[in-house]
Write a protein that binds this DNA or RNA. Structure first.
Length: 705
RNA sequence: GCGGACGUGGCGGAACUGGUAGACGCGCAGCGUUGAGGUCGCUGUGGGAUUAAAUCCUGUGGAAGUUCGAGUCUUCUCGUCCGCACCA
């Protein structure tokens, strides 16, 4: 039964050269695609280039070239390299995100999102990468550091464009359950990132000025144990209460804390009224309250929360037990019977939560609330080499999102990249325009879109890369979702979450029938290699030789120590160049080694023995088909039939290492029993099975027979 | 701390719904071909007992359980890797 199969590997960033990770990725996908083509399926197997992004700008400055020239040259080079891998790709679908013919459609999608209320501009405290001189999305900040530069991220208040991914938080979370062919690990990571929690929002009245302070909690049942309120240093109430200098002082104090988890707080001169009791509660600025979660404010219940407990101990605040437990069990955050809580006494935790929310609603002091960790996706980047955002600003500060008829906004080629920051700001020739609608002077938006926007819909553009609009509805409904998407796990949150959001947003805007972009996700493992080091530096494996049982450096004869197998990386120099391997071992051996040894989703250790034995297998198969034909028997037929079904089963299950074992098993049997098939019909069957894995070998033998 | 994955020879890894554990490969050992090496061919290779064969014992991190039967199922426990982490 023929059907459509959309096989996709994550498209590469054109950094200059293909590396072994690409080779593994694309060989896995290629085997899949070739298999389905053999089965008569309508296969889409495209390739393109994730071509915008900062490395091009940095390289342009370093090598005195232009980001576009550098990128296009790299694309050409890498395309040559890819074509040497015998990949069956639909090159007529090729696209590069830096081409006008791609990004102009993206500008249209931006307008769609804007019109649907899913793109908006706001002042926000954003993550600023001081090295790359640009804003980063929350997803791009890892351990407080920029994902590319590793530089400590600063907080900056800037006016920025956002995509309203939070509108889809619930659906993005729920639909994970339907993605049965995604790795559990990736789904869990997305689940955690979305971070849904159910609780209550409570309004605390500030006694001094009759304003209300909103607080989010998952434990409203412990409200009678509240003995302080704590807010983040960036909470609006702080600005209203303290002057700038004092705020700066506190910020400084907080930043000087030695242990990250130590608690520190400063009481401010306001108090809240307890919503259910006649009680004054002090308000603190506390270092452990996050400004980007919930309301940026909490009520502290020291008896039943570890952090609140620690804080209360340090500042001698009352610890009021409201859930029955031993005193030495404090802080106790488990379930139990409510005490010291007039309206809740005797209830357990869950019932108390339900009851107290009812009371809050009745008294109009709070309500049930679902809170998500995920924030809206900040897409503005203060960089030149990206998709221009189709927006103009008037001299009075107003802005207008352009109409589709006014597109494209073309990124200017002439640019001076020498200064710091975004070069577009200084390019008045491009920036300053006369607004077609108002005839007023206007300035173009100089921020460009995050490159993750580019990669959020490229799988859609592949369906028809020549269309004068971004896509055709029928194509999407017919060809999406992608059946098998293969790539590295490093995109578990970023790219894969953004793409899911994009698909859903476009579905709602254009009334599409597709909910998810990628039906099956397969995350391939890294390639590792032993590391080698002389006294002072890492050296490449090819510069190491073994002499008298000792490892030494080929040119200087220095003693070399061998380290454990680690992910191939330029810094540790434990890389193997695909070009050299292809030259020395050939495409067939390279392909088969990529899938030998380890299952494709696990690490693959590169070894010289491994690639050599792959080469030996290729020679062995060639030699086998040189032998003169003799008689076969039924057992041989059975063996070949089993081989066929095993290969099919294992390709479909991505158990490609088992395919290699199947090949060995078959040839072991044939050679051991001296059964030579030559041009027997069974040979054809075997060669067809070998074709997806070893296309070149299979074809060349077939020609000979 | 929370969550996920996993634990099988010297190594990478097989074992479909419980049914001969270790397929297949690497490595290693012996022999042969070649004779500089690599390639190539044959044999052996979980551990232990036995001169050897036959044979026996033991064996999937550990402990207990279900079962005629457990690498596989259940409970507990130990360990490794990964992700998130002051998330109220």
């Amino acid at each position: 039964m023929a059907s459509k199969k959309y096989i996709l590997e994550m498209f590469p960033y054109p950094s200059g050269n293909i590396h072994m990770g690409h080779v593994r990725n694309y060989v896995i996908g290629d085997i899949c695609a070739r298999y389905h083509k053999l089965k008569g399926d309508e296969v889409i197997h495209p390739m393109g280039w994730d071509a915008f992004g900062l490395p091009a700008e940095n390289a342009a400055i370093q090598f005195k070239t232009h980001p576009q020239d550098w990128t296009l040259k790299n694309i050409k080079n890498m395309k040559d390299q890819l074509q040497k891998l015998d990949l069956d790709l639909d090159w007529d679908r090729e696209l590069a995100t830096c081409n006008e013919d791609y990004y102009k459609h993206q500008q249209e999608l931006f307008i769609d999102l804007y019109n649907a209320g899913l793109a908006y501009k706001k002042d926000a405290l954003v993550n600023w990468d001081p090295v790359d001189q640009t804003v980063l999305a929350n997803e791009q900040v890892i351990d407080g550091k920029g994902w590319r530069t590793g530089a400590a991220v600063e907080k900056k208040n800037l006016s920025q464009w956002f995509f309203k991914i939070t509108d889809y938080a619930e659906e993005l979370l729920n639909d994970l359950d339907n993605l049965e062919l995604w790795p559990e690990k990736v789904k869990t990571m997305q689940k955690n990132w979305i971070g849904k929690s159910i609780g209550a929002e409570i309004k605390f009245k500030i006694i001094e000025n009759d304003v209300f302070l909103n607080v989010f909690t998952t434990r409203p049942d412990t409200i009678y144990g509240a003995s302080f309120i704590a807010v983040s240093i960036n909470h609006p109430i702080v600005k209203k209460t303290l002057d700038k200098k004092k705020i700066e002082n506190i910020k400084n104090k907080f930043s000087k804390i030695s242990h990250e988890k130590d608690k520190m707080g400063v009481q401010i001169p306001i108090h809240c009224k307890h919503p259910l009791m006649d009680k004054k509660i002090p308000v603190f600025i506390a270092n452990f309250v996050l400004d980007n979660y919930g309301e940026g404010a909490i009520f502290g219940c020291p008896a039943h929360d570890e952090r609140d407990y620690e804080f209360a101990k340090k500042y001698s605040l009352p610890i009021i037990k409201v859930i029955e437990c031993d005193d030495d069990a404090l802080p106790y955050s488990g379930d139990g019977v409510l005490i010291n809580s007039p309206l809740l006494n005797g209830l357990n935790k869950d019932d108390a939560i339900k009851e107290i929310i009812k009371i809050f609603m009745k008294e109009k002091i709070g309500n049930e609330k679902v809170n998500y960790k995920i924030r809206d996706w900040g897409v503005s980047r203060q960089r030149y080499w990206g998709c221009p955002i189709p927006v103009i600003y008037y001299e009075n500060g107003d802005y207008r999102v352009l109409d589709k008829e006014e597109l494209p906004v073309i990124l200017p080629y002439d640019i001076n990249l020498k200064g710091k920051g975004n070069a577009l700001i200084n390019n008045d020739e491009w920036r300053k325009i006369i607004c077609q609608k108002t005839n007023k002077i206007a300035y173009r938006e100089t921020d460009t879109l995050d490159t993750f926007v580019d990669s959020s819909w490229y799988y859609i553009r592949f369906l028809n890369n020549k269309l004068t609009k971004p896509f055709r509805k029928e194509d999407i409904n017919k060809m999406l979702p992608v059946d098998k998407y293969i790539g590295g796990i490093e995109h578990a949150i970023l790219h894969l979450l953004y793409s899911r959001f994009f698909m859903k947003a476009l579905r709602d805007i254009h009334n599409l029938k597709v909910n998810e972009p990628f039906q099956q996700l397969f995350t391939q493992g890294m390639i590792t290699h032993k590391t080698y080091k002389t006294k002072n530096e890492w050296i490449m494996p090819k510069d190491v030789m073994l002499k008298n049982g000792k490892l030494m450096r080929v040119d200087t004869k220095e003693i070399v120590t061998e380290g454990p197998s680690e992910k191939m990386s330029k810094s540790k120099k434990n890389v193997i160049e695909p070009g050299e391997i292809l030259e020395n071992y050939g495409i067939d051996a390279t392909r088969i080694f990529m899938i030998s040894d380890s299952p494709p989703d696990r690490e693959l250790e590169w070894t010289d023995d491994g690639i050599q034995s792959s080469k030996n297998l290729i020679h062995r198969i060639e030699r086998y088909f040189d032998q003169e034909k003799n008689n076969t028997d039924e057992e041989t037929e059975r063996r070949v039939e089993r081989f066929i079904s095993d290969i099919e089963k294992n390709i479909l299950a991505f158990s490609l290492n088992k395919c290699v074992a199947d090949i060995y098993t078959l040839f072991n049997y044939l050679e051991k029993n001296k059964i030579f098939l030559y041009d027997n019909i069974l040979s054809k069957k075997i060669l067809i099975c070998l074709f997806p894995i070893l296309p070149k070998l299979s074809l060349s033998i077939n020609r000979k027979l």
